[in-house]
Design a protein around this nucleic acid. Structure first.
Lengths: 344, 344
DNA sequence: CTGTTAGCGCATTCAG
DNA sequence: CTGAATGCGCTAACAG
């Protein structure tokens, strides 16, 4: 293991030529006899082919760059889990870069990745700008965006509009008439625009007397908590947060104000994080399978690398998870549900 | 950007030799005049030095492997954030491998990383086995473990024993006399043994009439939720979970059973996850700064790579976060705290 | 300060 | 089927 064997030394020890060893390692145009000799020597020495030398010769690197807005988020974690799952079975590996929500750094990371010789780049962006498009077009490695979409790039994501609609329909069906949607900034097209629009469209259509207000918050608990006063001023029967985290912040405020959920005000979100199942009331939500996105994206990348056709997809399946935090307005409020922890 | 410039072509275009270009790119033994010519050509062509060729020549790769038990955990996310923070300012990058909590895969990943020519390996293990030690000793790249420790390896971690003691002292001070500790399996030395022992030691010493029972759970909400019945059978005045997640599962069960926290039973944990601040009652906990561990570990790795001395550290600072979930047994229970969301 | 020369370790023609 | 020879793109002596 120590003095770093090279193919040349293996060849000498096995009494063959370098090329024979190389062939043994790759295609395999080698006689059984010599193959055996080589095999033995390799096993004994623990020889490992030099990664960089190999990559220098070959055109590919078996590395694909992944640029992330941040690392400490469950969604990102699951996404990566999915990506890794398919990559590992194909001998690929992800090279991560974090951009801390900075567009500038994101662009910089993409460039840096390309320079490292990755075979492709996956970008989990929080917003696709014109600069992204230009940069991406100038690159000579395939790229796939995830989480956001844009007509000029390849992408794999959920249908945020449909997710919004699911929630809108549900609140209509449960006969809520006045809800406030706590959303995020529109720079995030998927969450800030599509998801919200889906909700509004479905909730408002053919829903006489229905009304929906809007308040903008950030992605974190605290920001949501802080805008809770304002949502209460609308006196809604239900509030839906653009993410589960927003709901948790809201829930906390309601608890402090002794506003009972869902009796006095319903709450629902998007995301389907595990923790939504364990808080009380358990959060009704539209659940996203982030791991699936990761897998699909990785598969798409493999396709692209092989030079095959790829088609963007913004319709990955969504799951509506009905739990305890939304009241059915028609029914009596007294009969509480059994309140069993339903797992995740 | 397209036909992949090489140093040779740059040299020709600039009217100098390859080595001059190389020097320009590295150390800098170049006249201002020629430097300028080279600079211009590089800028025009968008030339980027070939990563693999460079790594083949040089001894280092500027890549350090990171093997993780899993990706979708906040703690891991923060750890990575910390690692990346120091690496990025030093031109290093992390190459991630996930072992899905399998020891076998973990070993395999370490080997694979070494083969890729990384300059070092950081291992966030959930348990150091004899195999880890042997493998690690046979490697020719430096390794640092994090999260766990062992006399025969380098490590950077919190002092789990001290964390346990903090909590033990606190519960003693708040005059609890009977608590049950919901811990995890002892294969996780840090959490399963040290943290628990610290708690027991501090809680029990010089604490007349005090009693502490133990129950083993897994790391997830559900497992904790499921063992809640058994902890209740002990009729404790407080229960401490080895992790905040365990507490959340417990809290859910207590809520379902209408057991008021902390009035009827106190709950406290370890971890300091953000979500602990937003649930109700907000969770009293010993907080770990995972990002700091990441930074320290990365710095240690850089030290090692430079060939300088490194010393393991298992005493990273801990923070006790007193929130709402533990009752001070001496005091009246009626006077509820203001219950303000204290942020994270 | 600069150009020339030699490999780094490997895969791959090309003759045998 | 196999060995000898070539070069991937780059850095590092080595002489100028």
């Amino acid at each position: 293991m120590e003095p770093k064997m090279t193919i040349k030394e293996i060849a000498e020890l096995a009494g063959v030529s370098k090329s024979t060893v190389s062939r043994y390692l790759n295609q395999g145009y080698v006689s059984a006899e010599k193959a055996e000799q080589v095999r033995r020597v390799i096993e004994e020495t623990g020889y490992q082919t030099n990664f960089f030398a190999k990559r220098l010769k070959m055109k590919y690197s078996k590395l694909v760059g992944i640029v992330l807005p941040r690392m400490d988020s469950v969604a990102v974690g699951k996404l990566l889990t999915g990506i890794h799952r398919v990559f590992r079975t194909n001998g690929y590996q992800g090279l991560l870069m974090v951009s801390n929500l900075s567009i500038e750094k994101e662009l910089e990371n993409i460039l840096s990745l390309q320079q490292q010789g990755v075979d492709g780049i996956i970008i989990d962006s929080v917003g696709i700008t014109q600069q992204h498009i230009e940069l991406q077009a100038s690159l000579d490695v395939p790229t796939i965006f995830t989480g956001q979409r844009h007509p000029q790039v390849r992408y794999i994501k959920f249908d945020d509009y449909a997710a919004g609609r699911m929630m809108g329909s549900y609140l209509k069906e449960t006969q809520h008439k006045h809800v406030v949607f706590v959303g995020v900034n529109e720079s995030d097209t998927a969450v800030g625009i599509e998801r919200k629009k889906g909700f509004m469209d479905a909730f408002l259509e053919n829903n006489e007397g229905a009304k929906a207000d809007f308040i903008e918050a950030g992605f974190d608990f605290f920001s949501a908590y802080n805008c809770a006063v304002r949502v209460l001023q609308f006196q809604p029967t239900a509030v839906v947060g653009a993410t589960d985290n927003i709901c948790l912040g809201l829930l906390r405020y309601f608890h402090e104000q002794k506003i009972r959920v869902p009796e006095e005000c319903s709450v629902a979100g998007f995301g389907g994080y595990d923790v939504g199942a364990v808080v009380y009331p358990a959060l009704t939500t539209v659940s996203f399978d982030y791991e699936l996105v990761g897998m699909k994206t990785a598969q798409g990348m493999l396709t692209l690398i092989r030079g095959e056709a790829f088609s963007s997809d913004a319709s990955l399946p969504l799951f509506f998870v009905e739990r305890e935090s939304v009241r059915r307005m028609g029914e009596a409020v007294a009969q509480k549900k059994p309140a069993k922890f339903i797992g995740m």
